[in-house]
């Protein structure tokens, strides 16, 4: 009841977006650390993939938790977006940005683009029928990554998608703090800088893999 009343308000919906955003940000970091094992070679990456699948119930808990976070994040965003559209029914003939970043104004573009990308990515490197598996049925992650990124079109798509992820995180990482009420003149500028730096590192780390495949695995 209390949670439902909280969610009724715009402030509550933003708090839900922040809380789910933290989970998704944590996933993005973990995913990057997993990805970077690509550079340790086929055995290490494939063993990492196998070990993840050996987690069993824990893996499913994580998957369901992430799915719930994604669904909550998206539904709160869509509800707020609809409210915001209704709040400004007539448009300005001229509107000039006076203090906001491009990334912050386009969250409602970068978000849906990322959702579409996640669908493609799951098909391309997790669920698709084209993927290679070993004799025990475990995916050959390394081989699949190399095969997948050897197509410049697919690699290009990932690179573009990661740029949108970077933009989404640049605003999202610091915005989480603001939404739950953490803002301080001393720490907020630092958090904003860390947000940009973290977003850049995540993008660079993820993009490096298709680039490496295109350059060195042809």
């Amino acid at each position: 009841m209390r949670v439902a009343r909280l969610y009724d308000s715009t402030v509550g919906k933003k708090a839900v977006m922040a809380a789910t955003g933290v989970l998704l940000f944590g996933f993005v970091i973990t995913h990057l650390l997993g990805n970077l094992q690509f550079y340790l070679g086929p055995e290490a990456l494939n063993a990492y993939g196998r070990n993840l699948r050996h987690l069993g119930a824990l893996l499913w808990a994580a998957r369901l938790g992430l799915l719930a976070a994604v669904l909550l994040h998206i539904s709160a965003a869509v509800q707020l977006w609809r409210l915001n559209k209704q709040a400004r029914p007539s448009h300005y003939e001229k509107l000039t940005a006076a203090g906001s970043s491009y990334a912050s104004r386009t969250m409602m573009w970068s978000g849906p683009i990322l959702a579409l990308f996640i669908g493609y990515h799951l098909y391309h490197l997790t669920l698709g029928a084209h993927l290679l598996h070993d004799a025990d049925g475990f995916p050959l992650v390394y081989q699949n990554v190399v095969a997948g990124f050897s197509d410049p079109l697919a690699s290009g798509l990932y690179i573009v998608a990661m740029s949108f992820l970077g933009m989404h995180l640049m605003h999202g990482i610091w915005s989480m703090f603001q939404s739950i009420g953490w803002n301080h003149p001393k720490y907020t500028p630092l958090i904003k800088r860390i947000a940009v730096l973290t977003a850049a590192l995540i993008v660079a780390g993820n993009i490096s893999i298709p680039v490496a495949v295109l350059l060195f695995h042809q």
């Binding site: 715009t10 402030v11 707020l80 915001n84 400004r88 203090g99 739950i180 009420g181 803002n183």
Partner: peptide
């Protein structure tokens, strides 16, 4: 509408009220 933390408001506020105030309201 809802706040998306972009900061246009504090940029145009004639009294320069910062969006830190909005965080305090959220909290």
């Amino acid at each position: 509408g809802s706040c998306t933390n972009i900061g246009e408001c504090e940029a145009v506020c004639p009294k320069r009220i910062p969006i830190e105030t909005i965080a305090l309201m959220h909290r």
